[in-house]
Nucleic acid binder design. Structure first.
Length: 576
RNA sequence: CGGGCCGUAGCGCAGCCUGGUAGCGCACCAGACUGGGGGUCUGGGGGUCGCGGGUUCGAAUCCCGCCGGCCCGACCA
């Protein structure tokens, strides 16, 4: 492609309010433009990268025997009502009515539609199956942000496995795990595979593929010693057992005027108390039922853990009036001592603790000398707390690291939830009807694109790995008005294209500096500089974008030399 | 959904407080010079000032409502 005839609108200024670096760079370098909140156009360069990524995804999915489909984005409500998710997913689904008033929705995922098709499977002998598609998903995110990292419309590679037995699902899951590893690695992304919460998707087990980045929104706890890694929504950790004093025979009420928070109580003049010796009492509403959630004063609740442990669908903090109704006190003086007739979920770290301080359910008063097991009617002991860096790995006790990450892939073992509801079953060897055991697997294509940029850029712009670069080689024509330069560059361009190399020819009538800066910005791996200076010696320059180191080569050897380098670098992609 | 900020040329912004002919930089068009890291000069084109209503002789500016965008929080498959 000749740059002078293409649409590559680079900018000199950063776009306003672009937070993530990938967002800034992709806009400035002319890869994407925003249309509305969380909705982006891919410009020719952006779409070229997207095609590179999807080609890799396709190849690796084909390699595990998956078959490609293309399903509708527009879904009838009835399908989602049958799976029970019409209500469940709430505002996150874009809903519309057709001209007859029928409810429809834009698909946010495709379990329902694929399962409907899978209901045509009749025999266990047709299993296993792996089906996939590259399709647009719509999710009405409450807060789109960070450019392509969190959007409302995006391309997803989603696949679904269909097996007779859980053991078969395990195998399909493993194949996806390996395929995902190869996909991310071929795209130049180092990923961490972590245990994750399955959330509203349901199912028994799930693994997320995470790319370490400050632009991400997920926190992951990991152990360098044994390899344990989990999303903090799921991560367990070991905390040192607290050594409480002997405590009191019974809880004792004391006045704490003006104390509203754990911090206030820590600094309370009359009777200061470390946060670790307080019981934090939270009031939550689980599917309409008001419950108490107890944590150590210095711990934070992970709502996903509460949701997973209780199986609740809607989990939210209680409102002030609901709290008053439940405990007859306000935030700041809440406690669970003496509470009955209400479920109380306590974090494991409170087990056996004595001499604790907690609210007295009377504004301005707290209780001390509370022995949790003696004084509080705990319904269930659960792991509910947020794991923190430095705490012990649950597998090997080494110190955990906690880092911010971008989720680029997520694989789920679904089981029979969808197949049972939507009637996808086969006859087994004994002639017995059995629901198909399913898995579902997703990769966000544009999010991957942004993640690569987050991980691979420098002060001057993007640095694409050759596997996903929009072009492999950029030829910078220093002075297109110089006939010798223009001819030499044109000949080089033709030669490289003839050799199957993807080349962009920067033949714009711009100053050299403009072209060099744009070249760095858009990030193509190899840049060939063709100009009068070098040509006088019969030379051109080859510059690697990554290192920005240039070497001079003879003009007549250049095409062969660059072709060799590109082919060699292409082959670095890990093979199966 | 709560808190904050912002909508003026393709992009980045000033003007608004204190109402009176709509501006600047970059980009764009024409021409000239120039040509190895965002060059110089000359001349030009481009605006329902987010939308609607109100106040006023007169509104980008003041008032009300709405819409859109961004950031923080909540939420999130």
């Amino acid at each position: 492609m000749r740059w002078s005839q293409s649409f590559i609108p680079t900018l000199r200024d950063d776009p306003a309010d672009a937070e993530a670096i990938s967002h800034k760079l992709l806009v400035r370098a002319g890869y994407i433009r925003q249309l509305m909140s969380g909705v982006y156009s891919l410009l020719p360069l952006g779409f070229a990268v997207s095609r590179k990524i999807t080609a890799i995804v396709r190849a690796e999915m084909n390699a595990i025997g998956a078959q490609e489909f293309h399903l509708p984005a527009l879904h009838p409500a009835e399908l989602w009502q049958r799976s029970g998710r019409w209500e469940l997913v709430g505002d996150e689904m874009f809903r519309l009515k057709d001209r007859r008033g029928a409810d429809t929705a834009l698909g946010m995922t495709h379990e329902e539609v694929f399962t409907t098709i899978a209901s045509e499977l009749r025999s266990y002998r047709q299993l296993p199956q792996i089906w996939f598609q590259l399709q647009t998903k719509f999710r009405d995110e409450p807060r789109p942000k960070s450019g392509l990292l969190r959007v409302r419309e995006f391309t997803m590679k989603d696949s679904y496995s269909f097996d007779l037995e859980p053991a078969g699902l395990d195998a399909s899951f493993q194949r996806h795990f390996q395929a995902y590893r190869r996909i991310f690695s071929r795209c130049g992304l180092e990923t961490l595979a972590v245990e994750a919460s399955s959330g509203a998707m349901g199912g028994s087990e799930s693994v997320e593929f995470m790319v370490a980045s400050d632009a991400g929104e997920d926190w992951v706890a990991s152990c360098a010693a044994c390899g344990y890694a989990a999303n903090v929504e799921k991560a367990r950790s070991l905390v040192a057992a607290a050594q409480d004093g002997p405590g009191l025979a019974a809880p004792e009420r004391f006045a704490t005027p003006g104390v509203r928070t754990i911090e206030d109580l820590v600094g309370f003049v009359d009777s200061p108390t470390a946060a670790a010796c307080q019981v934090k009492t939270l009031v939550y509403v689980l599917d309409g039922e008001t419950v108490l959630v107890l944590l150590r004063g210095d711990d934070q609740l992970v709502e996903a853990k509460l949701r997973d442990a209780t199986g609740a669908i809607e989990v939210r903090p209680a409102q002030d009036t609901e709290i008053r109704t439940a405990l007859a006190a306000s935030i700041g003086s809440l406690g669970a001592v003496g509470v009955s007739g209400r479920r109380v979920f306590a974090d494991e770290s409170l087990r056996g603790r004595r001499a604790m301080v907690t609210g007295a359910n009377h504004d301005g008063f707290h209780l001390r000398g509370v022995a949790v097991e003696r004084d509080i009617a705990v319904s269930s002991w659960l792991d509910l707390r947020l794991a923190r860096a430095g705490e012990g790995c649950p597998m090997c006790e080494a110190a955990l690291r906690v880092e911010k990450t971008i989720e680029v892939g997520h694989i789920f073992k679904l089981g029979t939830r969808y197949s049972e509801k939507l009637g996808a079953a086969v006859l087994d060897e004994a002639g017995v009807t059995r629901p198909i055991v399913m898995g579902s697997y997703g990769i966000g294509i544009e999010r991957m694109l942004a993640a690569v940029v987050e991980r691979s850029h420098d002060d001057a712009g993007i640095v694409w790995p050759i596997s996903v670069a929009p072009y492999e080689v950029l030829i910078t024509v220093v002075n297109p008005k110089d006939a010798a330069t223009s001819d030499a560059a044109g000949a080089l361009y033709d030669a490289l294209r003839g050799a199957g190399i993807e080349v962009l020819l920067d033949d714009r009538d711009e100053r050299p500096g403009v072209k060099f800066n744009d070249a760095d910005l858009i990030g193509i791996p190899y840049r060939l500089t063709v100009g009068p200076k070098g040509l006088k010696e019969g030379k051109i320059e080859i510059t690697r974008r990554q290192t920005r180191v240039a070497r001079s080569v003879d003009l007549h050897k250049a095409a062969a030399s660059v072709t060799e380098s590109v082919l060699e670098e292409r082959s670095f992609a890990p093979q199966r």
